[in-house]
Simulated scan of single mutants.
Amino acid sequence: MTQPPDASPPPPEDGARHGGGASLFGRRIRDRRADIERQVQAQVQATKAQLDATNEKIQQRTGRNLIFAILIGLVGGALLLVSLIVVKEIFMVFAAALAGFAGFEFATALRIAGLRVPRVALTVVGVVLVPAAYYLHASGEWVVAIAGILFLWLWRIAEDVSPSRRVGGPALVRDLVASALAILYVPFLACFSVLLVAQPDGQWWTLAALIVVVSVDTGAYAAGLSFGKHPMAPTISPKKTWEGFAGAAATALIAGVVLAIFMLHAPWWFGLVFGALILVSATVGDLTESLIKRDIGIKDMSSWLPGHGGFLDRLDSILPSVALAYVLYVIFEPLFS
């Protein structure tokens, strides 16, 4: 008797069995990978949104774009270190460029207040004054500064001859006074940095002064942002607080002592003197520029440096501080040698 055929399907080949399992395993892997990618993308977007929100809050509190400010500060600091440590003449070129840009920027800002300071002439004087101070020292700086003032005066008087630019009388006198002050405020003070660098081991004193200024700015920024409640000079700079000044004082004194011992090879007590005096000069320089901008009616000297404003907005604390550092070098360095 013939048996009926088996109705059950034949068993799958080994390849088919394994192929189906492999296909299911592959789909699970792809789904898992897609799920991980979605989670990572969501986390990245959330982090970016949080950083943007934090940066926006900081910008509203301080008026600065923190990211741009940090990037520009790092680049500028790297260039400064290379120019100071490698070849002093490179720092001279660096300082001349800054003096020229800052002078042009300051003269442009003064025009908003109705003061016409020759921009090209001030830029030329700033660029020439720096190498004069480096090679001719203090006496040469004074001679070139006086010659620069006379040069600006002659330039401005020559402009007044033109009927389209003629102001005459008190307005011309105000322009001449503003021209002299512009030279003394920007390139003349900037030249003390190269005067100091030109001295034996002067580059370390210059670098120490700059580090203390940065410490003052950082300490004031951090403490003011975290604890600032009591305005320091509300009519001049509303964002500055006494809490920020306290933070600046702490960082300045600590930086001064550390730098005095390890960089200037001076006693620790000189670090306290150095840090305290640079704290005062940096704060006065900052408030002075804030007062000038307030009188002119502007927030920043320019917008050339995103997150910082203009060149002079970054040099306001440095200019009087390097001049003070030069005086301290002349007085104290012979005692420590």
Rank of each mutant, 00 (worst) to 15 (best):
S317V: 11
T251R: 00
F270H: 00
Y326H: 15
S281K: 05
G275R: 00
M263K: 09
I254C: 07
F311W: 10
V257G: 13
A325L: 12
A246W: 12
P267G: 02
P267K: 08
D286W: 15
V280S: 02
V322Q: 02
V257E: 05
I296D: 13
D300Y: 11
L291F: 15
G309S: 08
V257Q: 10
T251M: 09
V327M: 15
G275L: 01
F270R: 06
P306K: 14
G256D: 14
V327L: 15
K299N: 00
V284K: 13
D300H: 10
L287I: 02
I296F: 14
V327E: 10
L253N: 01
I296W: 15
M301Y: 11
L279I: 00
L324N: 04
S303L: 08
A266N: 04
L287A: 14
H265Y: 04
A248V: 07
S303P: 07
D300V: 11
D313Q: 13
S290L: 10
L277R: 00
L259I: 01
W269P: 12
I296Q: 14
A252H: 01
F274P: 09
S303E: 13
V327Q: 11
I254E: 08
L291D: 05
R294E: 11
P267F: 00
T283Y: 10
W304L: 13
T283F: 08
S290N: 09
A255W: 13
V258E: 07
L324H: 11
S321T: 12
A266M: 02
W268E: 06
A282S: 14
P320S: 08
S290H: 12
G247H: 01
L305T: 14
L305A: 12
H308L: 15
L253K: 01
I278P: 02
F262I: 03
G285W: 04
H265A: 02
K293Q: 03
G310C: 12
S321Y: 07
M263P: 04
I278F: 04
S317R: 11
V258T: 01
S321P: 07
Y326G: 03
I254M: 05
L272W: 00
I278E: 00
V327R: 09
V322Y: 12
V284E: 06
I261M: 01
G247I: 06
S302E: 08
S290F: 10
L324V: 14
D286R: 12
G309W: 11
K293I: 06
G307L: 11
I278S: 00
D313P: 07
G275S: 01
M263W: 08
G271K: 01
G275N: 10
A248D: 12
D313I: 15
S317Y: 07
V284P: 01
E289K: 08
Y326A: 15
D295P: 13
G256S: 09
G309H: 04
V258H: 07
L279K: 02
V322K: 06
F311Q: 07
F270M: 11
R314T: 09
K293V: 06
F311R: 03
D300M: 05
V258R: 11
S281E: 09
L277Q: 00
L272H: 05
A266P: 08
G310K: 13
M263S: 12
P267M: 03
D313A: 14
G271D: 12
S317C: 14
V273M: 12
A276I: 08
I318S: 04
D286Y: 12
S302N: 04
D295S: 08
A249I: 14
Y326E: 15
T251I: 03
